[in-house]
Design a protein around this nucleic acid. Structure first.
Lengths: 202, 202
DNA sequence: ACCTGAACACCGTTCAAGT
DNA sequence: ACCTGAACACCGTTCAAGT
């Protein structure tokens, strides 16, 4: 298999999905490609460019339908769930998606498609952009917290959540709830809050 | 000045604030302390423990007043602004605050204090926890995006925002708005949405 | 044109040795 | 008790050399 930008970036994403973002080094990626790590510099000027290549692949996974006459609330919810699902499919790559500048072509493409949806739903341009920023921040924030704290929620098998000994009574009261895997419910709660808040916009 | 856990963690935070999170290495921190890097291992078992020490200092900066009879909307807004201000005072440390498990004592303390506020305002326990998760995710998500994309927004002096050539017309239309530093306004927009959404909770 | 090997300036971490 | 020096197994990146 010949080396190419696409194959390198795809192999890099597979490595990140498998071993985590910190495990991605030019040398290890070279090994996965059957080549010395330094060969990658023929295709990417540095590691930052390689990470941008990974982001491009990830955002391409996000299929955003063209505007239709479906109620905007439903479109808004579906797009939020689609983005959340993308993040949870690639938990180790979430930090790469937490700071996406609109100057990046792949980001601008996805943002433009969502803007088209919101504007078709009656949002004016400034509100649509701020709505996009709000929901994106929320979805990324939840996913990052959820994935980062997963080791503390995992595998308790009925044992209580390990709160510190001097924890607030309000938290102790919720220890059983904390032990369960109710991230999806928590996400839905916040999504409902945001949709209702947008419905009552002036 | 003798070495101590507190002095090491404070010096580490100062280094991160000055040079960024990636610049924090045991060797450079040692240099700032006037000592060889390896000496730090007498006080922290590894780098992860050192980062936890930094988090502890940061969360201690967050003063959360006891419950009062102020309307919960105002308390909610003030706590959100206080947390946002903390993040913007330490922009390079934001990734450390993006994944805070409640098993961490400093986190549990801050979370407990906020829970007390929300419960005094009439939220039941499960709702208070999910509300805390929602607002935290939003505040961290916005701050992280804002800081991470700051280089692309900075110092344009009237030049248009550098959108990619094939950008969506809906984005091109907003280029002037993108060039301005309206992050505060965007944050406020999302905060209003969330507060309104919480007001209409069932 | 494409890849390799050696080199440089870094990492986190361990551990025997110094004081 | 507290810090140092050397060592190990890693990093990203450059560049002359090979094919």
């Amino acid at each position: 298999m010949a080396l190419s930008r696409a194959r390198i970036a795809e192999t890099a994403l597979a490595l990140v999905d498998r071993d985590g973002l910190e495990a991605l080094s030019m040398r290890k990626l070279g090994a996965d490609l059957g080549v010395e790590g330094m060969a990658i510099y023929r295709y990417f000027p540095n590691k930052a460019a390689l990470l941008a290549g990974i982001v491009e692949i990830l955002l391409a996974e996000l299929v955003i339908p063209p505007p239709s006459d479906v109620p905007w609330q439903r479109v808004f919810r579906e797009l939020s769930h689609a983005y959340r699902a993308l993040l949870l499919r690639h938990p180790h790559a979430i930090p790469l998606l937490a700071t996406l500048p609109l100057s990046d072509p792949a980001t601008a493409r996805a943002a433009g498609a969502v803007m088209a949806q919101l504007r078709a739903a009656g949002f004016d341009a400034p509100s649509a952009l701020k709505t996009l920023a709000t929901i994106t921040s929320y979805v990324v924030g939840v996913a990052q917290w959820e994935v980062g704290t997963a080791p503390f929620r995992a595998e308790r098998n009925g044992e209580p959540f390990p709160l510190p000994p001097d924890a607030d009574p309000y938290l102790v009261e919720l220890a059983p709830q904390l032990a369960e895997d109710d991230c999806e419910e928590t996400f839905e709660f916040g999504l409902d809050v945001i949709v209702r808040g947008l419905e009552t916009r002036s």
